[in-house]
């Protein structure tokens, strides 16, 4: 019965979309610590995802293959290139980008199972090999990074 609760999720996304995130920002504009909601922790448990698990991803589907990749602050849709727990490759990841720091920060808050529903989720993109460090050509609100490939890591709270 209690598979997904689309209404609260859409509401949360709408709030995100209007730029009213409840995340407190640090002085450089990067997001501060943020709790992972209990529903997300529960959904991740159900999906066989443990905090610390990682998977390769495409960061922003709309900009697939761009190298370097210019990301403006705002919402993004990525996808898994390989499975993460029970989530198969191609699962959509919905999240947000902040470009104020020396490296771009990306957090994913929701996943969409192919042919299925959405689940709340908590994941970050790791700055492996400095791939998220901002490159020359970045400007206020736009972070230029290496490319559209990344590694998502499931987290129990946002650092």
């Amino acid at each position: 019965m209690s598979k997904t609760h689309p209404l609260p999720l859409y509401t949360a996304l709408l709030v995100l979309g209007l730029g009213c995130t409840s995340v407190p920002l640090r002085p450089d504009g990067t997001p501060g610590p943020q709790k992972c909601p209990d529903e997300a922790l529960e959904a991740m448990r159900m999906l066989g995802i443990h905090p610390g698990d990682t998977a390769p991803i495409v960061i922003e589907t709309s900009k697939f293959g761009q190298k370097p990749l210019a990301l403006p602050d705002g919402l993004i849709e990525g996808y898994l290139k390989r499975n993460l727990g029970k989530l198969p490759a191609v699962t959509r990841l919905y999240g947000q980008v902040w470009t104020g720091g020396t490296a771009v920060v990306i957090r994913y808050y929701e996943v969409r199972y192919p042919q299925g529903g959405t689940f709340p989720f908590c994941g970050i993109v790791l700055n492996e090999d400095g791939g998220l460090n901002k490159q020359p050509g970045s400007s206020p609100g736009i972070g230029v990074i290496q490319d559209d490939y990344g590694t998502v890591q499931a987290v129990s709270a946002f650092p």
Binding site: L14, G17, G19, A70, G74, L75, T99, P140, I142
Partner: peptide, 13 residues
């Protein structure tokens, strides 16, 4: 529709 820093359109249901 909110605009993103690069001028692209923001969230829309």
């Amino acid at each position: 529709i909110p605009t993103r820093p690069d001028g692209s359109p923001g969230y829309q249901p």
